[in-house]
Amino acid sequence: MANLGNVTNLGMGVIPANFDGGLHNAPANQWVMFTSGLAHVTVPGDDSDGAYILGGEFGLIFAADTADVSEKGHYTRYPGIVETVALQIPTLDGEIPPHQVVRSRPCHANDTVGLRAFAGTA
């Protein structure tokens, strides 16, 4: 089991299929767990194709582009044909969990191959 750190005020959203969430900032430093559906997240000025996040096993991201640190935030679309369910889990006191940056770009499917082997390890 992975420890997400101190979290508070869990929220759940059900986003309609093919919804355009527009350009926005994260409301708080928070984990977002997409349990179903599909999200496409892009960052203004980034030349990559963004990240497609499929709900389920690898649907956990951390959003830290709050208005106090990011002028533009990110753009989110939900291009799937079914609704997307997302849990928003802000960290206590806006804490950003200890982490290590492993890529300067979005991960792709090949980047997640074999991750199950690391589940539960510290």
Results as ranks from 00 to 15, higher is better:
117 A>L: 14
74 H>C: 00
53 I>E: 01
5 G>L: 05
102 V>R: 12
22 G>F: 00
101 V>T: 15
74 H>V: 00
5 G>I: 05
21 G>D: 04
82 V>S: 15
80 G>V: 11
35 T>S: 09
12 M>N: 10
5 G>N: 03
76 T>Y: 09
31 W>P: 02
110 N>R: 12
50 G>E: 03
90 P>Y: 01
101 V>W: 06
31 W>C: 02
46 D>T: 09
67 A>Y: 02
25 N>T: 07
81 I>A: 15
55 G>V: 01
7 V>E: 01
15 I>H: 09
93 D>N: 14
101 V>Y: 09
19 F>I: 02
98 P>I: 09
84 T>N: 03
121 T>W: 09
57 E>A: 06
93 D>L: 02
17 A>K: 12
19 F>V: 05
27 P>C: 11
11 G>W: 11
12 M>P: 04
52 Y>N: 10
113 V>P: 08
117 A>T: 13
90 P>D: 00
98 P>W: 08
111 D>Q: 06
120 G>A: 08
1 M>R: 14
29 N>S: 03
13 G>I: 12
49 D>C: 05
77 R>C: 05
53 I>F: 06
19 F>E: 13
14 V>Q: 12
2 A>M: 10
115 L>V: 11
115 L>W: 14
121 T>K: 13
36 S>H: 00
111 D>L: 05
51 A>S: 11
83 E>T: 07
109 A>L: 04
38 L>Y: 04
42 T>G: 10
88 Q>G: 11
44 P>E: 01
60 L>A: 04
49 D>S: 14
22 G>C: 02
24 H>F: 05
116 R>A: 12
16 P>V: 09
57 E>W: 03
28 A>R: 11
19 F>D: 07
69 V>N: 07
10 L>G: 08
53 I>K: 05
16 P>C: 07
89 I>D: 04
75 Y>D: 01
5 G>D: 10
84 T>V: 01
20 D>L: 07
55 G>R: 00
96 I>V: 09
118 F>Y: 13
46 D>W: 08
21 G>M: 04
6 N>Q: 14
16 P>F: 10
61 I>T: 14
112 T>A: 10
66 T>V: 15
87 L>E: 11
36 S>I: 03
111 D>P: 02
77 R>H: 05
34 F>I: 00
100 Q>N: 13
27 P>M: 11
97 P>H: 03
100 Q>C: 10
67 A>P: 10
51 A>M: 15
107 C>D: 13
83 E>D: 13
72 K>G: 00
62 F>C: 10
51 A>E: 12
92 L>H: 06
64 A>H: 10
43 V>H: 00
90 P>K: 01
65 D>N: 13
9 N>D: 15
104 S>V: 10
69 V>E: 04
80 G>W: 05
98 P>C: 04
114 G>M: 15
60 L>G: 03
86 A>C: 02
96 I>Q: 02
71 E>K: 04
89 I>A: 08
22 G>Q: 05
